[in-house]
Nucleic acid binder design. Structure first.
Ligand SMILES: [Zn+2]
Length: 475
DNA sequence: CGGTTTTGACCTGCGC
DNA sequence: GCGCAGGTCAAAACCG
């Protein structure tokens, strides 16, 4: 839409290293389940419509009418009707015009906002750099260097890596549940990640639910451009590396394994999972252990959830998609992309301790995947990320921004509001009536209900006794 | 009994 | 066109 600067497939990889502790089975109580699934979209749409409508109506009616009225007609009635009609038509035209204008403005605002966001990240990054050493940054570089397949493109530091406690999170998303969660969930250190946007463009539409989209040919002809865009976005993949002994990192979602394959250069098999939290959820993930270091689990997420997620899951999901979004669209706005990174940083920073920095790695999908963009979360890096608008700025400003960020992240309400607002903007800009972004849902969902424990209560998984669903490490 | 895992077969894209 | 590798399907097995 506004500026789809990047076409080429990109990929980002996020690596979180974590020490996974044992998930103490299922302690969490059954989740009250998210009552509100009201996606942010609804709201946003409303807003948009209302606004435009009003403006249009008020602005134009008069002039038009007056102009049209002059016509000469035999019958007064006729004349009246006709004039009225004409007036209405004119009005309509005006409205359309206005609408377009507004749209344009929206786009602008959107891009501006995005730019600001980028700026903010840059600032944060710089700040972190100052405060903390640059070891991490080295690591990041290492990673991308070592994995030859990776082509560094953008780097971002998603967060003020600071917090060290779960308190943050607890206060944020959950109170009592949080503690519970924490105790039961494994701790995973995660460090860097890369989102990798694959070339594939045959993603389904979330609306429809999961479609065996595997057959491009079968896929009915969809919208051309819009489709492409969406596909691009949807195709974003995020791979998360986590040091974990568990067979799977806990991300708060429920997954069903649908396949397993022996990857080529890796003795460890790669497992394929599909999100089962909602029937049609298109999200998939691949899980594989790093060949070099078996303790490292590489999880690659793909797609956006089409349903609300529990806070825990949200953090991950939104983060990934957010990162993807940001990287994928240099100047595109996205609620997820904008706000989630912070969120994530906050939530995960604690878990990002001085953990093992050095990971290099082969991108699991390094085979033919596109470029990979390492992202550092919660840690400083001097590998500056390039933002379209550049970034240096005074420290004071940086502090301010940081503070603001903190405040924002800390306040769920604000977050929600922001999410809604952005969502609305986006919705308008993209004109996509679909609910496809889990992001929106996430945001809203998150603040509204704080049920955090998404424990593996249920259904347990049959097979290996390893519950597929998991909780995010509260801490 | 419903949901999940397992696992071999099948399909598709890509490089040669 | 062929072979390889990755990804997905689907039937059978498994589990709570
Ligand atoms: Zn899902």
């Amino acid at each position: 839409m506004d500026t789809g600067s990047f076409d080429p497939p990109k990929s980002v990889e996020m690596d979180f290293f974590s020490n996974e502790k044992k998930k103490s089975s299922r302690g969490a109580a059954a989740e009250p389940d998210l009552g509100l699934k009201v996606p942010g979209l609804a709201i946003k749409k409303e807003d948009l419509t209302i606004n435009t409508g009003l403006q249009l109506l008020t602005a134009n009616t008069k002039s038009d009418q007056s102009t049209v009225d002059d016509g000469i007609y035999p019958n007064e009635e006729d004349k009246e009707e006709k004039s009225e009609l004409a007036a209405m038509q004119a009005e309509l035209g005006r409205m359309n015009e206005e609408n377009q204008k507004l749209r344009g403005m929206l786009n602008q605002v959107t891009s501006n906002y995005n730019a600001l966001q980028m700026h903010l990240f840059t600032l944060l990054q710089q700040r972190n750099q100052k405060n903390v050493g640059n070891q991490s940054s080295h690591e990041a570089v290492d990673e991308k260097m070592e994995s030859g397949a990776m082509v560094p493109r953008q780097f971002m530091d998603l967060g003020p890596a600071v917090a060290d406690h779960a308190t943050d999170e607890a206060s944020n998303s959950s109170t009592e549940g949080g503690s519970l969660d924490r105790s039961t969930s494994p701790t995973t250190n995660k460090e860097v990640a890369a989102i990798d946007n694959e070339r594939a463009a045959r993603e389904d539409s979330p609306d429809d639910g999961w479609i065996p989209n595997k057959n491009p040919k079968m896929a009915p002809p969809k919208g051309p451009e819009q489709q492409a865009q969406e596909a691009t976005m949807r195709k974003a993949r995020v791979s998360v590396r986590a040091r974990s002994e568990a067979p799977m990192i806990t991300d708060g979602c429920q997954w069903r394994k649908y396949g397993q394959k022996m990857a080529k250069g890796n003795p460890c098999p790669r497992a394929y999972y599909r999100c089962t939290m909602a029937t049609g959820c298109p999200v998939r993930k691949q899980v594989q252990r790093c060949a070099e270091d078996r303790s490292i689990l590489i999880t690659t997420y793909e797609g956006n959830h089409n349903h609300p997620l529990p806070p825990a899951a949200m953090a991950m999901a939104s983060t990934t998609s957010a990162a993807a979004t940001m990287l994928l669209s240099g100047s595109m706005s996205s609620s997820a992309g904008l706000m989630n990174p912070n969120f994530l940083a906050r939530r995960y920073c604690p878990a990002l301790p001085r953990g093992r920095p050095r990971f290099r790695g082969g991108n699991p999908s390094g085979d033919r995947a596109g470029a990979v963009q390492p992202i550092q979360i919660g840690r400083p890096s001097h590998v500056g990320r390039r933002s379209p608008h550049g970034g240096g700025s005074p420290a004071s400003l940086a502090d301010t921004v940081t503070a603001a960020t903190a405040a924002i992240t800390a306040d769920p309400n604000f977050t929600a509001a922001l999410a809604a607002a952005i969502a609305s903007i986006i919705g308008g800009a993209h004109q996509t009536g679909n609910n496809n972004n889990a992001n929106n849902n996430n945001a809203i969902n998150h603040n509204s209900n704080n049920n955090n424990n998404n424990n593996s209560t249920s259904s347990g998984s049959g097979g290996g006794g390893v519950p597929t669903n998991s909780n995010f490490p509260a801490t």
